[in-house]
Every structure is written in C-alpha cells, then in structure tokens.
Design a protein around this nucleic acid. Structure first.
Lengths: 215, 215
DNA sequence: TGGTGTGAACAACTTCACAGCG
DNA sequence: CGCTGTGAAGTTGTTCACACCA
C-alpha cells in the first residue's frame, strides 16, 4: 500500500476479479502449491494474464520477476485489500426460502462473513430460534438490534414489494452496505454501498443468447 | 428489426438493461400508465436517458419524437428481443436449500421460464415427488430425460466441487445454456452460453467498499 | 532465462449535444 | 414545443509488447 491516490480510480471489475483470484489461490494453497504465475492463474480464472498483473499492480508489487507469485502471500495480500482480515457482521432480512438457503451456506465464516441477526415480519416466524442459535427478530426491532450487535451489512431477501421499505429501515438503523436479492433497483442515499444479485436478469441474458444463436 | 449486421456488436450490458427496463415497464403497464419517456424510465432504473434510447435504437425505432414510448408496445418489443415470447424449459440440478428456493420462486412462469425437471444425486431425494408435481431424477438419467423433455437451459445449484462434473454432463446431454450458482468458473466449449450468479463476489465488493470508506 | 510491471495502443462502452420529426 | 435518434466526444477498461530484474 504505497500511494493512496491510486485507490480512487480502481475499476469495480478489478475488485470482482481479486475476489475470484482469491478463491483459486485458496484452492491452490490447500493443494500445497507454493508458487503461481499469472499465466497459470489466467487459465483457471479465464482472465488475461496481463489483466491479472495490472489488477495486482494497483496495490503493490507482489510478484517476483522470472518466477511468479507466492500463493500464500498473494492470498493474504488480496484478502487484506478486500478487507477480509476481520469478520463482517451481517443482518439477514427475510426468512423465506432464499433466506434459509443463505443461512445454510456455512462457508461464510471461513470467508469472513457471518449472519449475526435475522429479521422477518411474519408473526409465525418472529421469536423462533434457528439451528445456528439466532433468534428471529421483528422488523420493528431493527433500529436497536442493529446498533447493539454492530451490524454493518444488510442482506435483503424479501419479496420485491417490501425491499425498498426494508432498505429504508436498514439505512436509518445505520447500516453501511446492502446486498439486495430482490429484483428492484434500490433508491439509496449517495455513498451507501449497494450490490445487487439478480438471477432473472441473467436468465434473460441466456434467453437472448439462445434466441440470437438461432438467427 | 432492420439490419441483422447490427446484432453482432450489441453490448452485454445493453441486454442486461433491457431486462431491467422490461421489469419497470411491466409495473407501469399494470398501473395503467400508457406512455413513458426515457427521462422517466431513467429515474426508475438509474440509467442515463441517452443510454436507454441508444439501447433501444440497436433494435429499431420504438418511440415517438416529442412524446415518448407506448408502455405496452415497448414491453412487448423488449420481450420479443430477449426471446421471451415462449416458455423456456429448464433443468434444475441440486435440490439443496438453494434449489428449493429457486423452485419456490413462482414468478418464473409469468416471466417466461419453467423448471421442467429436477436432478439430484442423493438417494434419499431421488424419486421423490415435489409439490409442483416434478419427480426428482438421478443424475445418471440426465441424458435421456433432457432429450425427452426438450430442456434448453441447465441451472446448477450444487456444491462447487460437483459443478464442473454436472456442467459436463449437461453439455453432453445437449443443453445449450447454463446458469451457474456454484462459486467456480466453469470450463465450457466455445459457443455455449453461461451466466454466473455469485453473491460471495458481491459481498467481497461490499467489504472492499466499506474498508476503503474508512481510509 | 522467464515472468513481472507498465507505458502506450487499442477496444468498448457511456454521455453529450443537437438535428430532426411528430 | 418536446423527446427521440444518433454522430461525435469523452471516458473507462483491456490487451499488447517489451524493458527490467530475480
């Protein structure tokens, strides 16, 4: 981390790729691979080797010329860049099918994330205790619970119709980032971090590609 | 649809945005809104109005100068462009938590998609009949079932370790497109359509943004 | 020797600005 | 008059090609 000026103009795509690199570096580290060159990583990730080197160069000089990168060291650096030297505390909102699926995804902690609280609005669910130990809180308790448990990331897994309302409440409760699974574009104040996971859009892309292929 | 040459160079981002436009047009159509201008749609979607007009212009002239676009007509055109004038038959592979969540997502049919078959490998699940009427087939029956039921899109909702194997089998069974929820970059032959839904990457983006915001 | 780090060329996408038309 | 459709300008991201160094 040398020149902070650099950080302002780093492409989002670079961060996304760093995340992908880290995944393969993790696998390699586990297999006992010590050193990797950008060409090798390129094959695994489907990213141009020059792109990989440029992505890394934004943050420092991690490689050795004529050799490559030390797997463990590079993994450590990327995780540090991404901010994964700590556990991020998340709130899950919406205990439907998707919510359950997310909770069950137990690699989270290893990767640096945990669902510290769960919210729902259904009286039949509120108050129940989940296998992992969490209690389901009512939406109305959000403000106090989020402050108390020091939650930083809100995950919206509600129907689309409720998502904006939930986002508003998360924001006024002091959340700083939102991962949105509902199929709407959230309106949020400047500076708040939002990411959107939307597989219906991806399906439409596939439908388009298949349709075009037949032309 | 005038000049087919145009179609070769349409940005993926354009298709993704068309999908988003269609969502808001649907909402407007339901509310009885007859006409919309690119400025209005821009506010809803968070896309520059010139961008919207340019996206549409790839495919024809759908608007009226000085007026805007007829909501229903534009929606129809976009759905035609995306290939949603038919129901796409999909195979779900992996009946874990995520698989269940996907099956429960019942807007699919209205949007132009249906899970026509479900596969798993767990003997405790294979043969069971799901609420929607589908039987869970074993992976080994994939080749025949996919041909018989004329499946075009495969949806991978298995653990990462199995995803490549499943993809290979889907491909040799004749599938033409894959929606992959497993956190690995699939290796597939040229020309096969693949989309990847990966929320851990999105989380890493949020972690990075939060970390940077504190610098 | 062989692979990194990087300026310079290139390619892709977005926004501007305004002509043109209903 | 107002909003579309679009060339031209601007911006951003990617790839090349090679100097440089372990």
């Amino acid at each position: 981390m040398r020149d902070l000026m650099k950080f302002s103009k780093i492409p989002t795509a670079t961060i996304t790729r760093l995340s992908i690199y880290s995944r393969y570096l993790e696998a390699m580290a586990q297999e006992g691979v010590k050193i990797v060159a950008s060409d090798k990583l390129s094959q695994k990730c489907g990213v141009n080797p020059a792109q990989i080197r440029k992505d890394l160069a934004y943050f420092g000089e991690f490689g050795i010329r004529g050799v490559g990168y030390f797997v463990k060291e590079l993994l450590f650096e990327i995780r540090r860049i991404l901010g994964l030297h700590k556990i991020w505390r998340m709130a899950l909102v919406g205990m439907g099918n998707l919510g359950s699926a997310l909770l069950a995804h137990q690699n989270f902690i290893r990767q640096g994330y945990e669902f510290a609280v769960v919210f729902d609005i259904d009286p039949g669910k509120v108050g129940r205790r989940l296998p992992n130990g969490q209690i389901i809180y009512h939406l109305d308790e959000m403000e106090s619970v989020i402050a108390e448990k020091e939650i930083e990331i809100g995950v919206i897994a509600t129907p689309a119709a409720k998502a904006q309302m939930v986002a508003n409440r998360l924001i006024s409760a002091g959340i700083r980032a939102i991962l949105n699974f509902a199929p709407i574009q959230l309106q949020v104040p400047e500076g708040l971090a939002v990411e959107h996971v939307d597989f219906t859009v991806k399906l439409d892309n596939l439908a388009y590609q298949l349709t075009m292929a037949n032309t």
